[in-house]
Design a protein around this nucleic acid. Sequence first.
DNA 1: AAAGTTCCTGACCATATGGTCAAGAAGAGG
DNA 2: CCTCTTCTTGACCATATGGTCAGGAACTTT
Lengths: 210, 210
Amino acid sequence: MAQAKRASSKKERRQESETLILAAAEKVFAEAGYGGATMQLIADLAGLPKANLHYYFPTKEALYRQVVENIFQIWLEAADAFDEADGPREGLGAYIDAKMEISRRQPAGSKVWAFEVMHRAPIIQDYLETTLMEWTKGRAQLIQGWIEEGLMDPIDPQILLNMIWATTQHYADFSHQIEVLNGSEPLSDAQWAAAKADVKNIILKGLGVK
Amino acid sequence: MAQAKRASSKKERRQESETLILAAAEKVFAEAGYGGATMQLIADLAGLPKANLHYYFPTKEALYRQVVENIFQIWLEAADAFDEADGPREGLGAYIDAKMEISRRQPAGSKVWAFEVMHRAPIIQDYLETTLMEWTKGRAQLIQGWIEEGLMDPIDPQILLNMIWATTQHYADFSHQIEVLNGSEPLSDAQWAAAKADVKNIILKGLGVK
DNA sequence: AAAGTTCCTGACCATATGGTCAAGAAGAGG
DNA sequence: CCTCTTCTTGACCATATGGTCAGGAACTTT
């Protein structure tokens, strides 16, 4: 009894704190990179004393690793779009939509991912070599299948994936540049919709998707 | 007389030293970001004592600024491809080629640019707002002209430019990921050629370029 | 309510880093 | 040769940072 002092059990509070810290960390890592981020900055943003961060995450690197792993998960989930489709128009279209949506809603995560890969992936190298590699091979085969069915032009699937990743993630990673060139205004709903549609149309048409 | 002790006058040596330092700095900033880079690392890579860097560049920030400005210059020079063309196939095609070539030959520079923009451009914000903005407006008009001449589909020029930047720079910024997915091998000449051609073809076809 | 466990935090420490400086080396000019 | 300027560099400093720790608060269990 007497468990409802506030609204949360110990486990729930632990979860909350970890989530809070991870969110702050994601932001700070995205804005400053691993080297530029400081535990103090993350602590301030989370509204906790620095020592508390070290209670939940023993080292800066452990915290960073967790952030990157979380992002990678989201990254992979966008792939569902692929599997449930039976043709390139639907499959690639949905995947592009999903990735654009991630760029819009989780730009910080995308930036951390970009930082990490640019660093030559010191933390998640193993993920690249295993999970990402397998994922990519699977989708490449799928695309290859579509090509052989004559549903789209014969394009190296890897080059296509690079293009989709590049284009969609650009809207997160280079959001600052995009905003400046938009008159220092964030993209409006309409602009996001237009970007999404145009990107999708150009790529699908460029692939000769039937 | 007696000026040819080695092969270089004082001014020439100064130039050499600065170039040497800038090259080392570009690499280190690209690999570690601004925060992660240290003057010591740069000095070691350049083969000079740290104090000597501070003779040529008073602060880390000044050195970084110079690196970024140099990159920006190269960036702009690729735009020549645009001006000398009289249609989208030639103009956009040459621009894509030029940007792909930069990604291949100067990946470090591209990465530093990406870092800087992701940081919300603390150093070169003014460049974004002036030079880049004007450059972009000019090319957007050019593209708009092509559209009105019926040489390509009506696409928001800014979205097109974003797509070209994203796709071409991806090959520099995410070179590590690309290599890992290529079996941990750098792209061969043939693979680069294929990527260049495919990227160009997909985009031009996607734009409905006549 | 006592005992046990988990959580929180201010104060502290060792280290690394950007930057300084003074003293000298190396050329240039006369 | 002598002087003046430009370069070079080892040693040094102030600061910031990641990380530690001991003691206490808060919650849980018996």
